[in-house]
């Protein structure tokens, strides 16, 4: 592999952009295809499949074996609410290899002392979220229980490509949330993207258990197709 190509691949990852390295195992030629250029590539269908599944692997092209090295950005969890659940979630998410960012305008909550290991933004979501950027490798967790803070974040998340949006609160709380969203024009398709009540139903009670159920749901969202079978099988 050419050093310039390797450097480019590393650069794309640092910038949170997906890319696929295409290696012809017969001719030993290589090229790097950036996410934005995939549709123009002769292997576009194969490349976009591989990227969607986040899976590297061998494909056949013109009778040649071609290896696709898929590089998808590190998953990022943006938690709205510097709350107890978020504190429990940080070390677990790190174990899973995800980045975590905390956003909460309440300075008493969003203190570096409570979150020594991750970036904390003591700002309103409508200020912080656009600056943090949105992509389909991002999950949003709405954990404040306070519509004043959660709702603006939810509006932003629903307009993004985020792969997961979860909102804390009972079915009743969520019912009211849905009404507010409908009033300002969000349709059923958008509202269905919200996982609420947040997390897998494992009977979670403690903050750590709720964090576990959220991360379980995020993992399922990543690894399972909508019909419940494993992606890639």
């Amino acid at each position: 592999m050419d050093l310039a190509l390797l450097a480019r691949l590393n650069e794309e990852r640092a910038a949170r952009r997906a890319a696929v390295l295409v290696t012809d195992l017969q001719s030993n030629t290589q090229r790097l295809v950036l996410e934005k250029d995939i549709m123009a590539d002769p292997l576009s269908a194969l490349l976009s499949d591989a990227l969607r599944m986040g899976k590297s692997g061998v494909v056949e092209s013109d009778g040649h074996k071609v290896f696709l090295t898929v590089q998808a950005p590190v998953l990022r969890i943006i938690a709205i609410g510097a709350v107890h659940i978020s504190q429990a979630l940080v070390p677990m998410a790190k174990q899973l290899g995800h980045d975590v960012i905390i956003v909460d305008p309440r300075e008493a909550f969003a203190s570096p002392e409570r979150f020594p290991d991750v970036p904390v933004h003591a700002e309103w979501p409508d200020v912080a979220l656009p600056r943090l950027g949105a992509d389909r490798y991002t999950a949003y967790l709405l954990l404040t229980h306070d519509p004043k803070i959660d709702d603006p974040a939810l509006h932003f998340a629903l307009k993004s490509d985020a792969f997961y949006i979860g909102a804390l609160g009972s079915r009743k709380t969520h019912g009211k949330r849905v009404e507010r969203l409908q009033t300002i024009g969000f349709d059923e398709h958008a509202i269905k993207r919200i996982h609420a009540p947040i997390g897998l139903n494992i009977g979670a009670i403690s903050p750590a258990e709720i964090a576990l159920s959220i991360l379980g749901e995020i993992t399922a969202k990543l690894r399972l197709k909508p019909d419940g079978t494993k992606i890639g099988n």
Binding site: L3, L6, L9, N10, R13, V58
Partner: peptide
Amino acid sequence: LATDDDLLRQAEEWRREGRGVALATVVET
């Protein structure tokens, strides 16, 4: 060096230091 991504960065660094470097990748199992 927990992830395979870190390893690609390692490969780049070693090469920039002037070392001879090879990259091995599992392509099929």
